[in-house]
Write a protein that binds this DNA or RNA. Structure first.
Lengths: 335, 335
DNA sequence: TCGATTGTCGGAAACGATTGCGTAATTTAT
DNA sequence: ATAAATTACGCAATCGTTTCCGACAATCGA
């Protein structure tokens, strides 16, 4: 088996002490420039790589952070991850991604996995099914830096980044109203998600502002966030069975937009499809479905901001009590 | 700051030695059952978590593996990752995902990042742009276990898992022929990818078998694997500009299928769209586009198999020279 | 009954990198 | 010229866990 070269090896070869080599490699000011050069040259020539475990153990830090999202096969989250990575790599952090699949159990397991001192901090977007937050509260209480993005909780104070969901939802709903639709349904996400309440509020605001009465029977929740296509189809079937079918639908999430469009394709002839507007960061959904108006969240930016704030928490020498709750604007795209 | 409890703390509290505690926690046979129980109870009560860095440092293993794919926002890869995770977690391994975005530079950087002894092995699906394999060859030569899946290379011998691309491509092309199409174009992936050659072969086989002459001008490659939508649109525009437009297209990948369908939607009226068949593991593509025939790869299974073989390599006490190249069958879905 | 085996445990040295402290040699200040 | 400061480096402890050697007692076989 291959045995990687260590600091000791370099020290021996160059007749220096390991301390000097270590300091030379980290560019310490108290090492002679000449010596540094020798060490660095030797290290490069022999393909030296510092052992991250030894380093982490000694320093008590891993320079890696954990990301918990419901799933990566989702344009919003994958772009957010890209944003996270862009900042992380620039600052020398590794990113470990894990998926909850919107299931409570897996969220708990993954977070525990990540948290056991293998990461310096956590970036979390809550799972749709999670109602009990104690697994996260405990970690936070133990001093693990945590930043929430998109799907936040208010069980404790920390940095958060979200989109302006209320306004986005309002704008989307208004775009449907402007196109002349009156009977606008709302396909909502899991009820206890922060984004669900905010987007519902925006939907209600738009209706109220245009004098359209709110009809509770036009609102359907998907408790698993659309993870199970059946639940989406049941909601759509419900809409289709209504004595007066809605002529438009405002959909609350990326995943649900996918589910909604394909459910309609499956369950009803094309001329019975309502107009659809909704949150989505998909690259192609709007291209495939011409009359689909979508609200884009600034996913990449959210990832960047979240990561920056997490690094700030991690690298702060003293406990932080002044938390920021950043809200980014969404963008309406219609064709 | 919170200070986690260590083995020493437990040892002190229970008046044992750290060695005994360590052995008790790993359920060693040479520890009295009574003592084990005391240790485990104390550990659980005080919420002890073994420090993974210390453990890894000592054992020379991290119990984590790295996965390199072009992108996670892709149904095939996200399902493959699910398969990988399902096996990994069962065997006590962590999974670290990283994305190459089909770019050579990022593949090199990510693999280096992962490889520096932070992972026990690598699961790789090659980036579309990569033509130089030396960064991987070096690691392999240094003894790092590597398994390829889907997009393999033959620069050296190791375990691989692929789909039966040739047969899948043949079946897909045949399905188009069976529907009466004669002028079947092929939208191909990057030329130096293993899957590209195999699928091209299947396409050619189908044509030959049905007496249709091969027309090179009906084949277009996407050198960036469709990462840049423009290159897909150029290919489609090329097809549209042909004096005799193809009446069907066989598309070589998931990403390209997306790109192809949306490019046609953008560039041509619906009645000029050709029939499309192609590789795709998307959950919704075929629902949105009714006449889209797709070849599904057993993504989840591929992930599982790849991970099992990697674990076998990692845990083998002696160097392995007997490598397996597993080929899984694809599935045709038409509606 | 005496050596041999078995069952339990502790001591101490690793794993590789980092860092507080000490110190010799050189330079600077007075 | 001598004290003081600076430069450049080494020593050794440390992070938390694991594991190779023992070691001591109790039990066993003959």
């Amino acid at each position: 088996m291959f045995k990687p070269i260590t600091i000791k090896d370099i020290a021996q070869a160059l007749e220096l002490s390991p301390s000097t080599v270590s300091r030379a490699l980290s560019d310490s000011y108290e090492i002679n420039e000449e010596t540094k050069k020798r060490v660095i040259e030797y290290a490069e020539k022999h393909n030296y790589r510092r052992n991250p475990m030894a380093s982490s153990l000694r320093q008590g830090r891993s320079y890696s952070i954990g990301v918990v999202v419901c799933e990566v096969a989702n344009s919003f989250f994958s772009h957010a991850i890209d944003g996270i990575e862009s900042v992380a790599y620039g600052k020398g952090y590794h990113v470990i991604i894990s998926q909850s699949h919107d299931a409570y159990e897996r969220e708990v397991v993954n977070i525990q996995h990540l948290a056991n001192r293998a990461v310096d901090g956590l970036l979390i977007s809550m799972s749709a099914e999670t109602k009990d937050f104690s697994h996260i509260i405990n970690l936070h209480a133990q001093g693990l830096p945590i930043v929430f993005f998109d799907r936040v909780i208010d069980a404790f104070e920390t940095h958060t980044v979200t989109a302006n969901n209320q306004k986005g939802a309002m704008v989307a709903t208004e775009s449907l109203i402007d196109r002349g639709f009156k009977k606008i349904a709302h396909l909502a996400n899991a009820p206890h998600l922060s984004i669900t309440a905010e987007r519902l509020k925006g939907y209600e605001d738009a209706l109220k502002q245009h004098g359209i009465p709110l009809d509770e029977s036009l609102i359907r929740y998907c408790h698993h966030g659309g993870r199970i296509q059946r639940e989406v189809e049941e909601a759509i079937q419900y809409f289709l069975n209504l004595p007066e079918k809605p002529d438009a639908v405002f959909v609350a999430s990326d995943r649900l937009s996918m589910g909604c469009l394909s459910a309609y394709n499956k369950l009803a002839p094309r001329d019975e499809h309502p107009a659809v507007a909704g949150f989505s960061n998909s690259d192609v959904l709007d291209l495939l479905q011409a009359d689909f108006t979508c609200i884009r969240q600034p996913a990449f930016k959210m990832g960047q901001v979240a990561m920056e704030m997490l690094i700030q928490l991690i690298e702060s020498r003293y406990p932080v009590y002044d938390f920021q709750n950043i809200v980014l604007e969404t963008e309406l795209i219609h064709r």
